[in-house]
Design a protein around this nucleic acid. Structure first.
Lengths: 218, 218, 218, 218
DNA sequence: TATGAATGAGTCTTCATTCAT
DNA sequence: AATGAATGAAGACTCATTCAT
């Protein structure tokens, strides 16, 4: 599905069909025959183009991780300087990718564990690098006193996580462009790294909740 | 795994073993034989206690959704009044559940789609109610002018989503208590619904960011 | 089902239930569990009363053959003398048994082949004796010039066969008493062994059939 | 086995092997593995040619009923006119089919009940038509005063039934050609529908039968 | 007498894969 | 590049049977 991974003819069709079915029913829930009938080809034919079912998945997982990594890197390269801008760029790219290439993102994320160590290696390498990008930005933002992170690791996981989930719930019939969704997530991410004002004037207005909040934690 | 769903003897063992394997390898990736050997029982024995593999999954999915719904309801009932406190209570409960019952949460979430309509019905009903709790709190918060939500629906999805992801990355060897993780998420959620201060020095305004950031970009 | 084979309590219930299910779905098509649920007892309980499923069948098959043999012998003993009367008695008894003990007859006939040689022995012995009764009567009838048999063996098979089939099609809702059915079969058997009159006008000779027939052809 | 149902290659082999085993051990008593080893093929291969074991049976049952119906129709078409000739033609065809295609006839008759309603439908339709042929001929024969039927329905069942049984006892090593068997059955059927001569000399009257009876009774 | 749990063998069927064509 | 047939392994599930209770 990503432009770079597009393959010609039958191989591309297999890739696209496999992606759709894997996203829908899972790797183990999809048989080589399912893919065959969905394509109008016989199962045996798949082996002209991929060594095995697992290799087909490996290719998809690799494409997904590459697309993700590429999107983040590009975002960073094109970003204005500074941790905040970079964070915004990362979040935007992260969310857009999970909205636009939702099936690929889901498959790459969900089914990565079925791959054998050899086939999974490239993907995990990319994933770690991608994660490092966000971690790095957050770290620098905090070093520079621009971010106020309750806990850098957890905040990173949360920001990444809410983006990942977009692939599961976003779809075009929602009346929302993926750009709008990305905008919101950018705003949320910014808020997440920004210290709240002392809440001096009791932003919770209706009166006087002052005390309540204190004991709120259990 | 949740106290309420604990079953006696063999049935309970099957439930626990199935949960573990389903979480690890997926429903379709786990064979009835896998469960059998992991339990030290023969596969045939499973059918004394569950009608089918699917019914076993259905029970787990149901338990997961019930535990989740129960946790949210309890949190709300015990919360101090007011949308902000309720939001905090919901997020805390949501995160704790996804940390403490991680496997159940993952299975209930990931494998719900393989269930036939009949078996899935109770779970989807509960899920909708659970979602409605958060949506309701956010809506009231905004009505009362306490929250500033860029987009209520997306914010809800984001808050829910980051909690859901906790089940995928949190584990006890992380040097973090789940309570700490919940604390952070509560703080993050509060920030997500709170308007940022006017950003007086306009930290987001491009162009005039205070120098230091420049070197941060790669 | 036959009075002599009736057993007390549970054993009798198993026998009756097994008979019904074997007749309906066949031996291999009926599981020990089917019998259990149909009886309201647990399958394990069957083994208190029968060594195995096969022994249950063997008992039924034996009962069936015994009842049949007994019916034929009694008929012969109570018959007026003479091959014709004896034939009539045999046919009547044969048909009555297959109507009144239809399920037992069907099972004893149909499922006898699944029994191991040891268990089947008593039944085959009886069957041969029963067949011999009819064969003997036919032979004597022919010797004495009372019967005109196109082919003794085939006629015997035919007379026996039409009676056997009664067990498959007769049931009480048919508006026919089994006695009526037996009457008809007796009459048919008598005709089967009786030479036709010289067919004076030669009704079978092609070409000269008496008019009326012509319109009958389609 | 009937010429019309013969299939090429493997499918035909499966059909033939299945027929043999079903006839011998019954549908439920025959496993897909039995068929496989009898054919020298692996069980899985059967599913290349038939959807399921039940579909294989359904095909056999259908073939059997078609062959039977075809045989009866052809017989009627080629018959001389008139109920008596038609009866003779029907009986001859009926018997020949049950002798020549014995296994098919037995399976089609015995195992039809295991088929699901959908799969059984074509066969029952044919069966009803076949029965109607005989019933029709008998009815016309009686209307025209050619037949003397003690009870039309029962006579039909008896004539049909004795033919059906041929499939169970006839085999070539018997020293009888199937044609001979058919001849006998034709003669028997004719006798069955023909009024006995008034038995003027009272052949059944006890007492005055010519001698033989004396020693005949046991 | 009755039963719940347990089990090894066996059920039908689907799987991914190969190979000759 | 494509396919129909073939296959060994594995899939979920059922079977008749046992045994402690």
């Amino acid at each position: 599905l990503p432009d770079e991974g597009r393959r010609s003819g039958t191989a591309g069709l297999i890739l696209a069909t496999g992606l759709e079915l894997f996203a829908q029913k899972g790797y183990h829930g999809t048989s080589i025959r399912d893919i065959g009938v969905a394509m109008g080809l016989k199962p045996a034919n798949l082996y002209e183009h991929f060594q095995s079912k697992e290799h087909l998945l490996a290719e998809l997982v690799r494409l997904g991780h590459e697309a993700h990594h590429r999107a983040l890197c590009t975002a960073l390269l094109e970003s204005l300087p500074g941790p905040l801008e970079q964070l915004k760029a990362l979040v935007r790219a992260h969310v857009r990718l999970h909205g636009e290439l939702a099936m690929l993102a889901v498959v790459a994320h969900t089914e990565i564990h079925v791959l054998s160590p050899e086939l999974v290696a490239p993907a995990v390498a990319l994933r770690q690098q991608s994660e490092a990008l966000l971690v790095g930005v957050l770290a620098r933002g905090q070093e520079q006193g621009l971010f106020d992170l309750p806990h850098p690791f957890v905040v990173g996981a949360a920001i990444g996580g809410m983006g990942v989930r977009v692939a599961h719930w976003y779809h075009e019939d929602l009346g929302l462009s993926i750009e709008q969704v990305a905008d919101v997530h950018v705003e949320l991410a910014v808020r997440m790294v920004s210290a709240r004002p002392p809440t001096v004037p009791s932003s919770a207005a209706p009166g006087e909740e002052p005390g309540g909040e204190r004991g709120g934690s259990r």
